[in-house]
Amino acid sequence: MNNSTLLDLRGVSKTFGTTTALSPMDLEIERGSFVSIVGPSGCGKSTLFNVLSGLLRPDDGTITLEGNNVIGATGHVGYMLQKDLLVPWRTVLGNITLGARLKGKVTPENRELATGFAEKYGLGEFLNHYPSALSGGMRQRVALMRTLATNHQLLLLDEPFGALDAQTRFEMQQWLLQVWRDTERTVLFITHDVDEAVFLSDRVLVMSPRPGRVVDDLRVDLPRPRTLDTLVSPAFTELKARVLHQLHRERAV
């Protein structure tokens, strides 16, 4: 483990009854990197997230985040799902500061931070709006702001754009990359969409089920910032082909 390692998993495994959801897994995530995880349903992606976030206790292994053992603990990662989970009775500002409220009082500093995020990323005019007045894309932005406002270095994003239409999704992907670059966070990103994984990431992990494990670990060296041109470049197509090939080979077995 070197200095730039943020998250370090050693021999982490989890079984449910007779099903091995996660076979012993070693994984190092570099600070500031963007890592995607692709794989079919039931490959253990969600189990991995639940173990990392502390919702599940692994059967075995160690998880070290910023040098601390975090097994069985919660409150050390930002977490976001496909469902935005905005609460209808709190305004945009109230939703962004929800993490702080859940830990105690919302301080003026929390509010300032939240307002700063919202203004910087196009939600400034909507701070006092209730979520019902927002579009799907905007709701996901608010959900991501809420995740950022918890001030954790590691963000776990579980198919955050899965429910959006293709065009909104592309906008959101570029927006996410901008936010990620500005805030220097580390992102673990689950998706079913191979294009999305390659487009966003520094690294793509391909997982396969029964037992859940990482079968390929792919470095994506496409230049940043990534644009529409990235999507049609030969290098992109090549990487995408490799991921697809891995996914299908695993499925054919």
Partner: peptide, 8 residues
């Protein structure tokens, strides 16, 4: 679940 992850 989200609240739990946030440490509430």
């Amino acid at each position: 679940t989200l609240a739990k992850v946030f440490g509430a």
